[in-house]
Design a protein around this nucleic acid. Structure first.
Lengths: 237, 237
DNA sequence: ACAAAAGTGTTGTAACTACACCCATGT
DNA sequence: ACATGGGTGTAGTTACAACACTTTTGT
């Protein structure tokens, strides 16, 4: 393909002005207790020192999805993250550096799998209930991400992306409660999730302290794929 | 804000290459029988003469949403359409003219309210079951739009955006069947939709020929707003 | 009279909610 | 012994699916 720009001494020239394109990721993780998101502390102006969503500029040889995946890899070391594009944020003045549009993704990752970023930036997990004021319009982006996650959880067994290989039903319940912001009856939750057939018992118990150790489960890969495809079969709580 | 470009003889110059940004709209309409989408026939190369989604380039003084709304107004004359952003399509070679990224929206409109476009382009409604081959990657965009609509209908009473002021329950049923691609029992559908309280009887009958005229309803604006807000109250079928 | 589509009520079944007691472990 | 959180079953209620006949109009 012939390039659509003219290379000049001042840079890449286009007939009409263009916005720059970035991706930002709301990375959700779960530690067995509550939902968290990964934030980075900005090292440069604008908003130097403020917490922000990890993100970066789109390259000309990659799709938006590839860009988001690349950024996510740089932060977490994960290669096959679960990601969903959920919005585009394009207010004319959302970034003081110029006309910058961001396509926002949320990712679901297992905190235990995340290595410290090789990006020499400060990154930290924050419980969704204690998120600081963020740079740019990232507060709004996070709110929209939470809303979308709440909706998507009904159609996709997304919850499982956030769990470790082996987990307990009470942990899974805490995750759903954390995402949906409501409480469930222990008995009913267990009954319902077991009825879907998505859980396979491991036959071992988790190691805990101070109380009876709960049963460990894995999720059944086949059933999981089936639920992911078949949208008429919904996981509701 | 100082501009982020340098104006040169060759155009607007940037330090790094940038993609162009467009919006495309999948405009869903309903004629009382089946779901339709509005397509335009391209008047210029590339894909001259091929059917495509209406869309256009982003201006520097508008958000993506404003751009989509502007394009939709040009095609339909509607000022307050129901729109949802549902995806971003950014394959490197999706457009032969260069690196063009599109943010896709779907809109729900009442066909009866649509005036012929003042854009001197050829526009036509196609039943979703008879969509021709489209320009660019628009086939894929349409498929994703249908999928998203199917999901969203469970959370938002979107169906109502597509109806005329007064409509009948069987019409509404055909709409839901058309969107979800499944059939419902007449009795159960009517029972369920009436139970939500969202319908107010008009007390008149629709004019039909060849069979018993069905009752007309309007939808209750208050209840509608309530359903739109309160996501825990879902309209499922 | 016949065809076409709309209106309507009941019954069996499956799913959900609400509820209380015992169990395994750590201190 | 006591505190903590996990495991489990049942009964009442509600929501759902399945089902057939009658009504109105046009031809």
């Amino acid at each position: 393909m012939t390039p659509d720009y003219i290379k000049t001494e001042q840079g890449y020239a286009y007939e009409y002005p263009r916005a720059a394109m970035t991706t930002d990721a709301v990375i959700f993780g779960f530690d067995g207790k509550g939902l968290q998101i990964l934030l980075v502390q900005r090292g440069v102006e604008p908003f130097k020192g403020t917490w922000a969503l990890p993100g970066g500029f789109l390259r000309m040889d990659e799709t938006i999805e590839e860009c988001a995946k690349r950024e996510l890899f740089e932060e977490t070391g994960l290669v096959q993250p679960y990601m969903e594009q959920f919005g585009i944020f394009s207010d004319v003045n959302r970034d003081p550096r110029g006309r910058i549009i961001t396509s926002a993704f949320y990712a679901l990752v297992c905190i235990a799998d995340v290595k410290g970023g090789d990006d020499a930036v400060e990154a930290k997990w924050f419980p969704v209930t204690e998120i600081p004021t963020l740079a740019f319009d990232h507060d709004r982006i996070v709110r929209v991400a939470q809303q979308k996650l709440r909706e998507d959880i009904h159609f996709r067994p997304v919850g499982f992306e956030l769990m470790t290989d082996q987990f307990t039903i009470p942990q899974l319940q805490r995750l759903y409660e954390s995402i949906l912001g409501i409480r469930f009856e222990r008995r009913n939750f267990a009954k319902k999730i077991l009825a879907t057939g998505i859980l396979d018992p491991v036959g071992k118990k988790a190691e805990v302290r101070g109380h009876r150790p709960p049963e460990l489960y894995t999720f059944n890969q086949d059933k999981y794929e089936q639920l992911k495809q078949d949208h008429s079969m919904r996981l509701e709580f």
